[in-house]
């Protein structure tokens, strides 16, 4: 374990990637990335578009399995267990490592059902009373309860964009994940809705390991404690966020964050 893969020198990282390479057919999108992610900190992935942030993020819960041409090499562990091992239950894995996407994608069902669906299929609860508890708890954690408690049976898609995104975060939370991956979760939101998500990330920190991909460097600076800069499929630099933004060690990082990129 080196400082470069684990800048805060966390003893038992929640997830560890070692020499991860991702190919789409013959094209290599990720060129040997090693990184640790832990429970107490928010990790931000930054870098120009096309550098592989989303591709790498998706390796952490095997979302790339759904892309026929994608092939992943290297090892990724969750609590020390290889998530690419044949014995890994992928459905279970995606509950433990939840994901929130760029565009809010609530199910075309009620707000209540959006939250209750996951716990029900994962067998966390069946009785209505138990589900009610989970729905309220998840919506509270997602910072949405006060806004929707009187209309839980309205459609999730009728909410504003920011509310929909918090609903999606609530949906991820409902199945009691350990890690939450967010891929540009605010890029479709206005500044106020963005601030609410950022505040939410801040509140969720410590309860879940959080990894957020963002093209907004100010956002990375605001919400994360560790920042990883990707460029052309390489992890160029991974460090404590305040160091990355005041004194990056790599020239490519510096050029990117100071706005001297291309």
């Amino acid at each position: 374990m080196t400082e470069a893969t684990n800048p805060l020198a966390i003893a038992n990282p929640k997830m560890s990637a070692r020499d991860v390479k991702v190919f789409y057919g013959a094209k290599q999108a990720i060129k040997g990335v090693s990184i640790d992610v832990d429970m107490d900190h928010v990790t931000a992935f930054i870098g120009p578009s096309g550098c592989g942030k989303s591709t790498f993020l998706r390796t952490l819960n095997r979302m790339n399995d759904t892309v026929a041409s994608a092939r992943v090499e290297g090892t990724i562990t969750l609590d020390g267990d290889d998530i690419y091992s044949p014995s890994m239950d992928v459905v279970q894995l995606r509950a433990r490592v939840g994901m929130v996407f760029q565009k809010p994608n609530p199910f075309p069902k009620s707000i209540y059902e959006n939250i209750a669906y996951g716990p029900r299929i994962h067998g966390l609860a069946h009785a209505k009373a138990d589900l009610d508890v989970i729905v309220e708890k998840s919506l509270r954690r997602a910072g949405l309860w006060e806004e929707v408690k009187d209309r839980l049976h309205d459609s999730g898609t009728a909410l504003s964009g920011g509310q929909q995104q918090r609903l999606c975060i609530g949906r991820a939370i409902a199945v009691e994940p350990e890690v939450i991956l967010m891929d540009e979760p605010c890029s479709a939101l206005d500044p106020i809705a963005t601030a609410k998500i950022e505040e939410l990330i801040h509140e969720l920190r410590g309860r879940y390991a959080i990894v957020i991909v963002t093209h907004n460097m100010q956002q990375a600076a605001r919400v994360s404690q560790c920042t990883a800069f990707f460029h052309l499929g390489d992890l160029v630099e991974y460090g404590v966020t305040s160091d990355i933004f005041t004194n990056p060690t790599q020239e490519r990082t510096k050029d990117y964050i100071t706005g001297r990129y291309g």
Partner: peptide
């Protein structure tokens, strides 16, 4: 207006 970073900020 520019939100300078890194060496620019310093």
């Amino acid at each position: 207006l520019r939100a300078p970073m890194a060496n620019d900020l310093r």
